[in-house]
Design a protein around this nucleic acid. Structure first.
Lengths: 219, 219
DNA sequence: AAATGAACCTTACAGTGTAAGCTGTCAAGC
DNA sequence: GCTTGACAGCTTACACTGTAAGGTTCATTT
């Protein structure tokens, strides 16, 4: 009789993990600005308000996504040389950005104050300290590579290569005529060059750091 | 008589410039997310839709703000040495970010395709080329310092020093106990250290660039 | 069997960007 | 001086947002 086939009311269906998974999906499909609790609910086959039983607000959900990504990172093997460990750690972080391009701008704007994020931050500081840098230089150099890393992720996921954003866009002809050096540089701004360009700058910074280290404790 | 003192209907009151000025004010007061066409209209003493006679959409308005800021930049005096010019240009860009901290995250996420922005981009590429770098290296090194610059602006305007963003924030006691190196580094993460830290990283990059230059054309 | 409480849904509200159309005002042409 | 038309700003309306408040259903414990 009552044939309530309208909805399979399987209870306890939702979980934080399921919601997070779906949220990544919606964000990558609709973009960060196009994300909404209602779209997420549609993806999950539930109502928007059901999500609020697992996350008290959209902000909490978004922060949980950051925690999820940062929490998946592991510090590189302590047996490896300092420089290699730093190189790996930077590439690891960059990878979680490139794996979630639409979410990446949120990731780099986020202020890392959760235990998970602080643990990662602490680990990176530890890499510098293990490399021989004192507390002050470790802090400042963390900032330096951090700036570079965040800027790189931002460009690679939301920058020039994603196409024009400006309303008054210049055509290719205009570009070639008015700004020939920009037109020529465009060849090196594409996604195909991301890896090489990133490593170029990262190696420059790490070179300088090793130099500072060599000067400090003479090899 | 007719005492229409309700509203001074001065015609042609609004202008793009006035609207932009007011928009900067609203953004800095309410934050980028708290900005809305209605709040902007309230600031201007008009209705929201009136703004659409001067800017076809909010996106157009925001992009105009970027153009306004970038357009205010001038390339450093061509008589100065290469490195000094680059230093000045980086600090100039950083300054427009720090002068509009709430707007800065939009500035660094923005894809610069307007003539104004391309002119700036072209100028910076020109600085590298004038410094002796070829087209490819100029492009890649522009990216390198650009990554660093954007990341720095992001942190200085919206980062750690602005306080916790995470929902599950750790207390100072927890921080000191569980992540003592982060607690110690906090001393160097505050706004008071921004200038020193920024110059440290920038000088590292410029040192490396000069080194590459010296190797290429032997002094 | 009754009660409890978690999980989920329904409704509602204030706020958003902006499309469509209206109105009052000023400048130019007769 | 009068008309006309364009322009600048206003009004209304719509689809959409996050989420507060409260209702409903069901699994579990007693």
């Amino acid at each position: 009789m009552d044939s309530s086939n309208k909805k399979k009311r399987t209870r306890g269906r939702l979980s934080r993990e399921m919601i997070e998974d779906a949220a990544f999906g919606v964000i990558e499909r609709e973009g960060l600005a196009g994300f909404s609790m209602r779209k997420l609910a549609a993806e999950l086959g539930c109502e928007a308000m059901s999500i609020y039983h697992h996350f008290p607000s959209q902000a909490h959900l978004h922060e949980a996504l950051v925690d999820r990504l940062i929490g998946s990172l592991e510090m590189p093997d302590a047996g490896l040389p300092w420089r290699q460990r730093m190189h790996i750690a930077m590439h690891d972080f960059r990878r979680i950005g490139s794996e979630h391009p639409a979410f990446a701008p949120f990731l780099v704007t986020y202020r890392m104050n959760s235990p998970t994020c602080l643990a990662w931050l602490s680990g990176i500081l530890g890499l510098f300290e293990a490399g021989g840098f004192g507390p002050e230089l470790s802090a400042r150099l963390f900032r330096t590579v951090g700036y570079y890393l965040m800027g790189a992720i931002l460009d690679e996921t939301a920058g020039y290569a994603k196409g024009p954003s400006a309303v008054t866009t210049v055509s290719d002809e205009q570009l070639a005529r008015d700004f020939p050096n920009v037109a020529a540089a465009g060849r090196y701004f594409g996604a195909a060059e991301f890896d090489r360009t990133f490593d170029l700058g990262l190696d420059m910074l790490l070179d300088e750091m090793e130099r500072a280290l060599g000067g400090a404790n003479s090899r």
